[in-house]
């Protein structure tokens, strides 16, 4: 093709460069600060924090440092974290501090993956409610706490290998997300083995907007929640204790 535009850095707006940086792992985005004086502050304006690359090996102090440098004024839309990938020394307290910090910055998308063998609980009870959160993906973690505020704008929830200490924790989580459209729950485990009944301490309303549900453990999710759904998939992953 005949190139009529020379694609060097002067043709890229700061907006577009930040857009590129928002798709990079945070490590790579931060490294662009030494490219040139123009690049130096740009990574701070990319609305994403992403520590998920398995070839990274960093301590939790890096996450604190990145959050601190960004301050509270710069919006943060996406927060992805994989413990037992790059970050090896975080505990429950660290995780709730980061997630709450991200929520205070207007978080829309939270993607958290821990490791069940690490025995770190995700303290949902300590997590602030959010009117901006739209996507919540939890992977390989334990929830042992009660959810208080809720995510009224949440549209997508994926629970992959999530262990709930008590059934009511799962129910609290669902009842705090009345506008959910997509629910994937692959291998959720409820440790107390409790299944839904109508005398539950709080009311489970029907999730009116739910369009897609993919679950592997049908008995964890009450049918009252999902009766409106248009697409329902069951995937038997393994047999639950009965």
């Amino acid at each position: 093709m005949a190139e009529t535009v020379i694609n060097d850095i002067n043709n890229f707006s700061d907006d577009i460069l930040c857009h590129i940086l928002s798709f990079l792992p945070t490590k790579d985005a931060v490294a662009t600060s030494v490219l040139s004086k123009r690049f130096r502050p740009l990574w701070l304006f990319a609305p994403s924090i992403n520590f998920t690359q398995p070839n990274e090996d960093i301590g939790s102090w890096v996450v604190y440092s990145v959050m601190r440098m960004r301050g509270l004024k710069l919006p943060l839309k996406r927060f992805c974290l994989k413990i037992n990938g790059p970050i090896y020394d975080a505990d429950s307290f660290d995780i709730s501090t980061w997630v709450n910090g991200a929520i205070q910055r207007g978080l829309e998308n939270l993607d958290l993956s821990l490791s069940l063998s690490l025995d770190i609980n995700f303290p949902l009870g300590n997590i602030l409610g959010s009117k901006t959160l739209m996507v919540l993906k939890l992977n390989k973690l334990k929830v042992d706490n009660v959810f208080i505020d809720g995510f009224p704008c949440l549209k997508t929830m994926h629970l992959d290998d999530v262990v709930f200490k008590e059934h009511r924790h799962l129910m609290h989580l669902l009842s705090g997300c009345p506008n959910l459209e997509e629910l994937h729950a692959v291998k959720p485990v409820v440790e107390d083995g409790y299944t839904f009944n109508h005398d539950e301490e709080f009311e489970v309303q029907s999730l009116q907007n739910l369009v897609t549900v993919r679950v592997s453990m049908a008995d964890c999710i009450p049918m009252e929640c999902i009766r409106q759904v248009k697409f329902l998939g069951f995937k038997e992953v393994y047999h639950h204790h009965h």
Binding site: I9, D28, V34, L35
Partner: peptide, 14 residues
């Protein structure tokens, strides 16, 4: 992604 500073400078003509 995961490239050196020199590589990225060359990529963007920085």
């Amino acid at each position: 992604e995961n490239k050196s500073v020199e590589y990225v400078r060359k990529f963007f003509g920085v």
